[in-house]
C-alpha cells in the first residue's frame, strides 16, 4: 500500500510528522539521543528560555498525583546566549524543526528574546505566557485576553519568525484568549499548558512541592485539553498544537480529530524516553489500519 502522508504545515513550516516534543520535558534533546533517533520527531520544543540564566525553584519540584504529575521547576535554564552558543548548534545536527519557548518577566524581555532569535537558525518561536510556576510574566500575561493581545502584538512586531502562542487553561474562557492572540497576529496556538494544582503530605502537614503549588500535566488533564483544543478550533483559523496528557497513538488521533495540527508530547517523555517515536509509530499503524492516506484528513474530522 502507498505510504501514508504524515507531513503537516505549522505556520508555514513543514514538519515531516505532527509529533512535537513539548517544552520543559525534553531539555535540549541531548538526553534522548541514546534512546531513539530524534530526527524522526516532527519538531522539538526546547526547554523554556529566558534572557538571563534562571536558577529555578527549590526542590521538591515534582509530585505524582493520580494519572498526573505536578511540577514546579520554575523555568531553570542557562539563558538565551548559552542556548544559542552551546545547545542550538548541537540540536541543528538533527533533521527536525526547532521551536524555542521564550519566557519573560516583562513585555520588553519577551520582545528582546524574539528579536535575538530572529537572526538565528530556529524554525518557530513559542511565546510562553502560561507558566504557572514563576512570580512574574507567565500566567500574569496569559490569563486575560487584553494582556495576551498586548504581549503577542509586541512580540510579533519584533520577529519575522512564525509565532505560536502557548495558552493557559487557567482562564475563564480559553476561546477569548485564543481569539486575542490571533487578532494580535500570532501564526499558531499551542494548548494547553499545565493546570495549577497542589498536593499535600498529611504526615508532615506540608505541601509536597517546595513551591506549594505547581502545574498539573499528564492523562489526568487530557479530557480538559481535548475539550479546549476542540473549542478553540471552532473559533480560530490558525494551526493548533494540541497537548495535555498525550501518551499513545490513540490520544494523538483524538487531538487531531478535535482540530489539532500538531501533537505535543510532554509528560510521556518523563515516563518513556522513546515516547515521541512510539506515539508516531502507533499513529502510523492507525492510519494504515483505517486506510487513511493523508494525516490532514484527520485534522478536525470529528463527526458531531
Amino acid at each position: 500500500m502507498k505510504m501514508s502522508n504524515l507531513a503537516v504545515d505549522i505556520c508555514g513550516v513543514k514538519l515531516k510528522n505532527p509529533i512535537i516534543a513539548a517544552s520543559g520535558t525534553f531539555g535540549f534533546g541531548e538526553a534522548f539521543t541514546s534512546y531513539m533517533d530524534i530526527s524522526r520527531i516532527g519538531a522539538i520544543t526546547v526547554t523554556g528560555i529566558t534572557l538571563e540564566p534562571r536558577l529555578g525553584n527549590p526542590p521538591p519540584r515534582i509530585a505524582e498525583t493520580p494519572s498526573g504529575i505536578l511540577n514546579s521547576v520554575g523555568l531553570q535554564n542557562p539563558g538565551i546566549n548559552y542556548f544559542l552558543d552551546a545547545e542550538l548548534p548541537e540540536l541543528r545536527k538533527y533533521d527536525t524543526a526547532i521551536i524555542v519557548n521564550i519566557n519573560g518577566n516583562t513585555i520588553d524581555e519577551y520582545c528582546s528574546l524574539a528579536r535575538i532569535l530572529d537572526s538565528h537558525p530556529i524554525d518557530l518561536i513559542e511565546l510562553n505566557i502560561s507558566c504557572p510556576n514563576v512570580k512574574e510574566g507567565g500566567l500574569a500575561f496569559g490569563a486575560h485576553p487584553d494582556t495576551v493581545y498586548e504581549v503577542t502584538k509586541a512580540v510579533k512586531a519584533n520577529t519575522k519568525k512564525p509565532l505560536i502562542v502557548k495558552l493557559t487553561p487557567n482562564t475563564s474562557d480559553i476561546r477569548e484568549t485564543a481569539k486575542a492572540a490571533v487578532e494580535a497576529g500570532c501564526d499558531g496556538l499551542s494548548l494547553i499548558n499545565t493546570l495549577l494544582g497542589m498536593a499535600i503530605d498529611i504526615k508532615k502537614r506540608r505541601p509536597i512541592l517546595a513551591n506549594i503549588t505547581g502545574g498539573l500535566s499528564g492523562p489526568a488533564i487530557k479530557p480538559i485539553a481535548l475539550r479546549m483544543v476542540w473549542e478553540v478550533a471552532q473559533v480560530v483559523d490558525v494551526p493548533i498544537v494540541g497537548m495535555g496528557g498525550i501518551m499513545d497513538g490513540t490520544d494523538a488521533v483524538e487531538f487531531l480529530l478535535a482540530g489539532a495540527t500538531g501533537i505535543g508530547v510532554g509528560t510521556a517523555n518523563l515516563v518513556d524516553p522513546t515516547a515521541c517515536v512510539d506515539i508516531l509509530d502507533e499513529l502510523k499503524d492507525y492510519m494504515i489500519e483505517n486506510k487513511i492516506e493523508d494525516i490532514r484528513d484527520l485534522i478536525g474530522a470529528l463527526r458531531i
Partner: peptide, 30 residues
C-alpha cells in the same frame, strides 16, 4: 530526590551545588 525522567531532561530532581558566588541547581539523576 523526587525524580521525573531520570535521564537529565526534565530538571525536577535538583540539589544545590556550591558555586563561586552562591549555588546552582544540579540534577540528582545525571
Amino acid at each position: 530526590e523526587r525524580m521525573g525522567c531520570g535521564i537529565g531532561a526534565c530538571m525536577v530532581c535538583s540539589c544545590k551545588v556550591k558555586m563561586k558566588d552562591g549555588f546552582e541547581y544540579k540534577k540528582v539523576c545525571t
